[in-house]
Lab assay of single mutants.
Amino acid sequence: GKELVLALYDYQEKSPREVTMKKGDILTLLNSTNKDWWKVEVKATANDKTYERQGFVPAAYVKKL
Rank of each mutant, 00 (worst) to 15 (best):
G1C: 15
G1M: 13
G1V: 14
G1A: 13
G1R: 13
K2Q: 11
K2F: 14
E3M: 12
E3T: 13
E3C: 15
L4M: 11
L4C: 13
V5E: 00
L6N: 02
L6H: 04
A7Y: 02
A7W: 01
A7S: 05
A7H: 01
L8N: 02
L8K: 04
L8A: 03
Y9I: 08
Y9R: 15
Y9H: 11
D10H: 05
D10E: 04
D10L: 02
D10G: 05
D10T: 05
D10V: 03
Q12H: 12
Q12A: 09
E13W: 05
E13R: 11
E13T: 07
E13Q: 12
E13K: 13
K14D: 04
S15F: 06
P16W: 08
P16A: 12
P16V: 09
R17I: 12
R17N: 13
R17Y: 13
R17D: 11
E18P: 03
E18M: 04
V19R: 01
V19Y: 02
T20K: 04
T20V: 02
T20Q: 04
M21F: 09
M21C: 07
M21D: 00
M21H: 01
M21E: 00
K22Y: 09
K22N: 10
K23E: 06
G24V: 02
G24S: 02
G24C: 11
G24A: 02
D25V: 03
D25E: 09
I26H: 04
I26G: 00
I26Y: 06
L27S: 02
L27N: 01
L27C: 08
L27Y: 08
L29T: 01
L29P: 00
L29R: 01
L29C: 05
L30W: 03
N31M: 06
N31P: 03
N31H: 06
S32L: 03
T33Y: 10
T33H: 10
N34Y: 06
N34Q: 07
N34P: 04
K35P: 14
K35N: 10
K35A: 13
D36V: 14
D36N: 13
W37G: 01
W37M: 04
W37T: 02
W38K: 00
K39F: 15
K39N: 06
K39V: 14
K39C: 15
V40F: 01
V40E: 02
V40S: 00
V40N: 00
V40K: 00
E41A: 14
E41R: 09
E41D: 05
V42T: 15
V42H: 15
K43R: 14
K43A: 11
A44M: 15
A44Y: 15
T45H: 11
T45E: 10
T45V: 13
A46H: 14
N47I: 10
N47Y: 10
N47F: 12
D48V: 06
D48T: 08
D48K: 09
D48F: 08
D48Y: 08
K49F: 11
K49E: 12
K49I: 15
T50C: 15
T50L: 11
T50N: 11
Y51C: 11
Y51R: 10
Y51W: 10
Y51N: 09
Y51E: 10
Y51K: 12
E52D: 14
E52G: 13
Q54W: 06
Q54K: 08
Q54H: 10
G55V: 04
G55D: 00
G55R: 02
F56Y: 14
F56S: 02
F56A: 01
V57C: 03
V57G: 01
P58S: 03
P58N: 02
P58Q: 01
A59K: 05
A59M: 03
A59C: 07
A60G: 13
A60T: 11
A60E: 10
A60D: 11
Y61D: 04
V62D: 03
V62I: 07
K63P: 03
K63W: 07
K64V: 11
K64N: 07
K64F: 09
L65H: 05
L65F: 08
L65A: 04
L65N: 02
